[in-house]
Simulated scan of single mutants.
Amino acid sequence: MKLFLLVAVASAAVARPQYGYSPPATYRPAPAYAPAPSYRPAPSYQAPAKYDFEWGVRDSYSANHFGHNEDRDGYNTQGSYYVQLPDGRLQKVTYYVNGDSGYVAEVSYEGQAQYPAYHAAPSYSPAPTYTPAPVYG
Results as ranks from 00 to 15, higher is better:
Ser101Met: 11
Tyr27Cys: 01
Lys2Ala: 12
Ser80Phe: 06
His65Val: 09
Val83Trp: 00
Asp87Leu: 03
Lys92Gly: 01
Phe4Ala: 14
Pro116Asp: 04
Ala12Thr: 11
Tyr103Val: 02
Ala10Gln: 03
Pro23His: 09
Val135Asp: 06
Asp73Asn: 15
Asp52Thr: 10
Ala113Phe: 05
Gly102Trp: 04
Arg16Met: 13
Gly111Trp: 07
Ala15Tyr: 04
Glu106Arg: 08
Pro122Ser: 10
Pro29Asp: 12
Asp100Phe: 13
Tyr21Leu: 08
Asp71Met: 11
Gly111Ser: 07
Val104Thr: 15
Thr26Tyr: 04
Pro48Trp: 09
Tyr124Ile: 02
Tyr130Glu: 08
Thr26Ala: 09
Val107Glu: 14
Val135Tyr: 12
Pro31Gly: 06
Leu85Gly: 01
Ala12Met: 14
Gln112Ser: 14
Gln78Asn: 13
Asp87Val: 02
Tyr61Thr: 12
Pro35Asp: 11
Thr77Gln: 11
Gln112Lys: 11
Val14Asn: 01
Ser44Phe: 02
Val104Ala: 09
Pro134Ser: 07
Val7His: 02
Tyr95Phe: 15
Ser11Ile: 12
Thr77Tyr: 01
His119Ser: 04
Tyr39Val: 04
Asn98Asp: 15
Ser62Leu: 10
Ala34Asn: 12
Ala8Gly: 10
Tyr81Phe: 15
Thr129Leu: 11
Pro24Ala: 12
Ser108Val: 13
Val83Cys: 00
Pro122Asp: 11
Gln112Gly: 05
Tyr82Lys: 03
Ala47Ile: 09
Tyr81Ile: 00
Pro17His: 07
Tyr81Pro: 00
Pro116Gln: 02
Ser62Arg: 11
Ala133Glu: 11
Ser38Val: 15
Gly102Asn: 06
Thr26Asn: 02
Gly102Tyr: 04
Tyr82Asn: 03
Pro17Asp: 10
Lys2Ser: 12
Ser38Asp: 04
Ala63Tyr: 09
Ala47Pro: 00
Pro24Ile: 03
Tyr19Glu: 13
Gly102Cys: 04
Asp100Ile: 05
Arg72Ala: 11
Phe53Ser: 07
Asp59Ser: 07
Leu6Gln: 12
Ala42Met: 05
Arg40Pro: 00
Pro24Trp: 06
Asp52Pro: 00
Tyr95Met: 01
Val57Cys: 01
Leu5Asn: 06
Pro48Arg: 09
Met1Trp: 10
Leu5Lys: 05
Pro23Gly: 11
Asn98Trp: 03
Thr26Leu: 07
Ser38Pro: 00
Gly74Asp: 05
Pro128Ile: 02
Ala30Met: 10
Gln114Asn: 09
